[in-house]
Each structure stands twice: as C-alpha cells, then as structure tokens.
Amino acid sequence: MDFRLSEDQEALKQGIRSFCEGRISIDQLRELESKPGAFDRALWGEIAEMGIFGLRLPEDRGGVELNVADAVLVFEELGRAIAPGPLIWTHLAAGLVEGADLGDTVVGGLDMTGPSTELIMLEHLESIDTLLLLKPDGIERIDPKAIDATPVEIPLDPFTPVHHAKSLPAGERIADAETAKEWRLVGTALASAQLLGIAESTLEAATDYAKKREQFGRIIGSFQAIKHILADCFVRQEAARAAAYAAGATLDYPEVGNVERAVSAAKVVAGDAAMKNARASIQVHGGMGYTWEVPAHYFLKRVWVLENVFGTIDEHSDQLAELVGATA
C-alpha cells in the first residue's frame, strides 16, 4: 500500500492542469457565458483529444487504459477550473455510445436512481446529441430532440443551462442493472473529485486575495479571523482529497474496502468541503465577492449543481448510517 500519487499520476494531473489553464481560464469561460448553451464544440473536441473521455477504455479501442483513481485526478483538475459541459456523462458513455470518446457525440444524462424523480430538470439539453437515463434496472437512451422540455430562462449556474420537462419519452435500453450500478458509483466518485477541485481553487483564490487586499494599513491575511477561516478550508480540502482518492482507489480494487461506503463518504466530505470553501471564498473577498465580476460566485453555483447530481449529502449520509458497524 502506498496512498501517495505515483509519478505518472502527478504528471497526468499536471498535464490536465496546464490544459485547463490554457483553454478553460476564467476569461475564456466568460466568453463562453454569452454563447448559446454556454457550449463550445471545438473546446469539447480538444477535451476529447486530451483523452479525458476515453481515459479508461482499453488501448485497442483507442483509450488510455487508466483506472478510476486516475480519472479522479483528472476530474479534480476539471473541477478546479469549473470546466463546463456534461463531462462525467460523456466519460461514462465512452465505449457504450459511439463517438463519445472522440468528442463527436456529446452525451448528457439524468440520474434517476435517487429518491426524487418527479421533477425533471435536464442539464445541457440543447448541446447534447444523446441523453442517457440512469435507472436502478439499467441505462436507457433517448433522443434529446424527442423531449418536450422548456428551457429555464435563468439557470443558477451560467455554465449549466437547464431544461424543465413534464415527462420523458420511452427510452431504448442499452445497458443492464449491473452497468447502471457501476456508473452510479463511478459518477459519484467523479463528481466528488470535481467538488474536491472546487474546494482547492476557492481556497487558492481566497488566499491570493487575502495576501493582496489591505485594510487598516495591512493585508487582511494578517488578521487571525481571516487566517483561521482559511486554515479550516485547508483542513476540509485535505479531508476531501483523502476521501475522493480513497473512493477511486477502492473502485479500482474493491477488496480494499467497501465500494458503496467509500463513494458515499467522498460525496459527503468533498461536498461539504466545496460548499464551505466556496462560501468562505466569497466572504474573504468582501464586497468584491458579491459582484458578478469576481468569479467566486461561479464556483459556489457549480457546487450547488454538483450537490444535486449522483445523490446529495443527505442521501449519502442516510445510506452510510446503514453501513455503520459493518466492516469496512
């Protein structure tokens, strides 16, 4: 056992980070904000070229043949940058939906394994080519154009447009219950990874600002009230890191623990960390934090989106309560 990142993993993470800094910077996101669907197919193609969708496919099928733990690192970086689009769904669909791995088919999805399936809110509907429904008994495919849905005029997250539908047409079954279960677990781990990334980048932004902004003749980062808020953010970030990495490592080798438990723990702890750190970042930015111009709000809005995918903190806590006392 060595829980640290291998050299290859460090390099993979660094590669994705450089890509995000070059192609998904805040300024570039701002340009995207005004585009229809807040979506850029060219960028999607570049993400595909980075191997992000085909990451876990076997090499003989054009993939990179990496593990879930590696995908966690990749999605941590995508989360840091609040990279937009149905990244997790397209990644999951690679190998099952033709063209998903190459970025030719943009795949969106809806997780219907949770407790509230009545209200149908669909993300990125106008940008996707295929919609997948994740149900307890399997995965179904729907043509997005066949759905009678109303666009939501003002979505919470400017980069996550949503449609509201009253009902969904019948879908075509493309995978069984076992695959659905696997997707749900991996999807939860990758959403946790994105939340971890947000916990990191919000702490970083707040730390940078607190080192520059002066009041009372000194930087606000010299006030203990500010330092301690950010120290707590750091602790939450490290807990989220440990939890998200453990979820990936457990999915790869289930014999090391309990997969459900590791994945739920990651969603809870990374979700908490992202939520609290994103709020703290706004607070530390003061009035600037309440503006549209400072990007702090984008991160919190994305956290609220991610809290509502692949099970909420409360749902996962309830599930974990059942597992308390079972051997890990």
């Binding site: 440990a242 990495y245 453990a246 723990a265 702890v269 806590s317 974990l320």
Partner: peptide, 26 residues
C-alpha cells in the same frame, strides 16, 4: 432519522480521517 443522518455523516468523516492518516503516514 435526524440521528441516523448525523451518524451517517460522521461515518463519512471518520473514513476520510483514516484515509488522511494513510496519506500522512506515507
């Protein structure tokens, strides 16, 4: 239910703590 939810949340944190120790010891 409120107790169960709180206890489930603790379980998540406890597992994360142990994973943190694994990283820190390494």
């Amino acid at each position: 239910k409120a107790l169960r939810r709180e206890v489930g949340h603790f379980q998540a944190e406890l597992d994360s703590l142990w994973s943190m120790v694994k990283l820190s010891v390494a």
